[in-house]
Nucleic acid binder design. Structure first.
Lengths: 211, 211
DNA sequence: CCTAGCATATGAACACTGATCAGATTAGTC
DNA sequence: GACTAATCTGATCAGTGTTCATATGCTAGG
């Protein structure tokens, strides 16, 4: 039975010639291929092949492969921001919420390894794409909001931003290095986020002595 | 005047045909090209071209491009470990020493961006290369030693290992995301390392209440 | 000294890749 | 219904990594 295939045009019909929904289909196929073979094994031609479309078709929508990657990365950051918003809507303790944000970050990175790696390979992306910048910035802003609520009230904006960046970098590192697998990563993520928050508050704005 | 060129054979003479020191020269050229164009712009043929050698020559020493990358990454981790050892030999406070280790990590990553990115792109490396594993493991071990001295004495081995991994991941993330530039990165690195150490000690083994 | 053996380097071939461009096809608009 | 603009095709180009038989010259054994 022909299940509805998201990688083919809507209405399950390619009348002929014009595809109808190529950009979305190309992005979906690109994500699939990235998760399947990684960035190194990626091929624009293979994406076109899977969409049953000519090799040159993608260029009319994305210009070049960097354009397609940029679209994929933008979608990735938008999903990430959406996940973050879900977490921020929950009614849990502030520190717990930061940890949950981190967990959703790591979860996203592990579920879509190829897509995630493209998101942070700035050398493969269009550096001037405003949609990408916006989506990435929104993700970071949501993390900052979570961090702000988890730190002491005396924390300055600069302090909050700095801590959020450290948390962001740590999560990226944990995913990129694949240092643990399965449940152990969850423990590591929780520990790391917690330690950074506590440590930052101790060191932070109102200077206290450290042990 | 002909300065001594490390990318050509020793003795500054390619009598003919046999190169004499190809592997080392290829690795040097690969690092140069990686730092120049990044992983995406890398080309094995260009490396061979710069060594003034046939396209197929590298394959006799490294098999394929993954083999060359693996050699580059191994050298990178050996240098990193060597830098770490220098820091560990200094007579500074333990926490300060961890920060200095982190700084040397970041410094290495910023000075050789292409090389550094290859070091952590496991999809581009030979996963069974023992020399690579050994060099990487030694680097992590040295970081663990620095962390152990900086944490409270009650810290278990497992705790030390976990904290070291978090520090490692954070530094990798800070470099990979290029979140700051110049001096600001140094501040960020010091802050991050410090916060993780302090936070880990507060959360750590002898359970205390947290604010 | 000189000769066989073997590691090293060559160059051509192959199957790929991403990008480009004129021309074919169709959708949307006046 | 005609026309313009968007979309897609198919062929072409330069460039890539890998493989293979062949050529070269260093080195060990006689």
């Amino acid at each position: 039975m022909p299940e509805p295939d998201s990688k083919r045009p809507q209405g399950n019909a390619r009348a002929s010639y014009h595809h109808g929904d190529l950009p979305r289909v190309l992005i979906a196929n690109a994500i699939e291929l990235l998760d399947e073979r990684g960035v190194a094994g990626f091929s624009l031609r293979e994406v076109a092949r899977r969409a049953q479309v000519a090799v040159a078709a993608p260029s009319h929508h994305f210009g070049n492969v960097a354009g397609l990657f940029t679209a994929v990365a933008t979608l990735g950051f938008e999903r990430l921001a959406s996940d973050f918003e879900d977490v921020l809507g929950r009614d849990t303790a502030p520190v717990e919420r930061v940890i949950e944000v981190c967990e959703s970050y790591v979860h996203h990175g592990r579920r879509h390894p190829g897509m995630a790696s493209v998101m942070f390979r700035s050398d493969l992306l269009d550096p001037d794409d405003s949609a990408l910048h916006e989506a990435r910035h929104r993700s970071l802003q949501l993390l900052e909001r979570a961090v702000r609520q988890a730190l002491s009230e005396e924390a300055t904006d600069e302090h909050v931003r700095r801590v959020a960046k450290v948390v962001w970098a740590t999560m990226h590192g944990l995913v990129a290095l694949r240092m643990e697998d399965g449940e152990a990563l969850r423990v590591q993520v929780g520990f790391a986020a917690h330690a950074i928050l506590v440590g930052s508050d101790v060191i932070g704005s109102p200077r206290r002595d450290l042990p």
